[in-house]
Design a protein around this nucleic acid. Structure first.
Lengths: 210, 210
DNA sequence: TAGATTGTTAATCGATTAACAATC
DNA sequence: TAGATTGTTAATCGATTAACAATC
């Protein structure tokens, strides 16, 4: 199988979302051209992207929405339940624990960890907050591959290392640092300040162009 | 001035962050080569990127960290205070209102809006939650260019339109929809589920490669 | 069969890297 | 002046778009 470009992978969740919407609207068949118009991309790009994973369409017909939706879900690994843990039960961690879209995509928060005595032991969205000391024991007895980190900068890499050592395979990192981890641990950064700065740049740019 | 590639803009906040760290560590001068090693990119890319905005360096010397930091901050528009409003005072909105990194980058939450009577009137992080009906009046009397949207899907585009009509120039959108707004409104999407799905894909990929 | 639309190859475009002359 | 390192041009690489033969 040829290597799939990173750009394609980043577009998959959006295809998945549009296909879900089509199903909701009871549209069961779609051509690359019509989907391209809805999504604001080229039909060529859609066909190229999908063909990285195999021929999901049919000449003269287009794509069967339900089938394509299932296939992309399978590629993304969201067709079955995915457990995850949240490290850092601050405001952001709590918000993510209750975030409905995670559950909708099959991601299930099975534990939270913190060290703050005023939070440890409490229950958030039905999840008891454990002390971070319990992390290793928990990972030994529970199958989890994903950890979400909403921690202060200075403890983030250490906790990420402990996750990796405990068998975690991927980290969604909200801390404002770049993680330094073994190659086989997948990392996805969400740097909220970066998004805000990029937005700020775009605004300034617009104003100058006017 | 030649057009700045989108890829360069998305890298600017990271440069900004690394330069801030250098200053904290009292490193006042740096070559593109040394910065490239710290950041894990090529020195050539750094020089190309920076030269989109002008010659910030000096041959034989490198870059003056403080000066470069200021310049990039100025390009990003984060050297002065930026007011923003948050629409949707749910868990995520509340977490963002308290998010320390926004304040650190000069972004100041000056108001929050919601329609839920159990939240409206309450104070979060020192900010009173107003009713969404007050949005237009508020925008008339307060200078705000940025709105952060943490709203349910079905009301998001309508509220975004109201923001745009009220003079908002840029929107940081956390809702799981693509906004359809006038061209002159800058949009930056943060789709948390997409990040999680991409991570899930990467993990699955890793496991197959092993 | 004729029409439609994919899968795929080729052409274009843009972004990254390499190389080196300019210059501090 | 000699050494270092930028700014910038040229070469490479990758991603997007266009075109069309294959085929349902």
């Amino acid at each position: 199988m040829k290597k799939v470009p990173a750009a394609v992978i980043r577009r998959l969740p959006r295809y998945h979302r549009y296909l879900e919407d089509l199903l909701k609207n009871e549209i069961f068949r779609i051509s690359s051209r019509e989907l391209s118009e809805r999504m604001g991309v080229t039909a060529s790009q859609i066909r190229q992207d999908l063909n990285c994973f195999g021929g999901f369409g049919q000449q003269g017909y287009g794509y069967h929405v339900e089938h394509l939706y299932q296939q992309i879900g399978s590629i993304l690994g969201v067709n079955n339940e995915n457990n995850l843990i949240i490290l850092g039960a601050g405001k952001l961690g709590q918000a993510l624990a209750k975030y409905p879209n995670f559950q909708k995509s099959g991601f299930h928060v099975c534990a939270m960890f913190d060290i703050d005595p005023s939070i440890v032991g409490h229950t958030i969205a039905g999840i008891r907050v454990r002390h971070s000391d319990e992390l290793e024991d928990f990972l030994k007895t529970h199958p989890v591959r994903i950890a979400v980190l909403t921690l202060p900068k200075h403890v983030t890499n250490e906790m990420a290392m402990r996750c990796a050592a405990g068998g975690i395979k991927g980290i969604l990192n909200f801390s404002y640092v770049d993680l330094d981890l073994p190659e086989d641990i997948a990392i996805e950064n969400v740097h909220l300040s970066d998004s805000l700065m990029t937005l700020s740049y775009k605004i300034t740019r617009q104003e100058q162009t006017d």
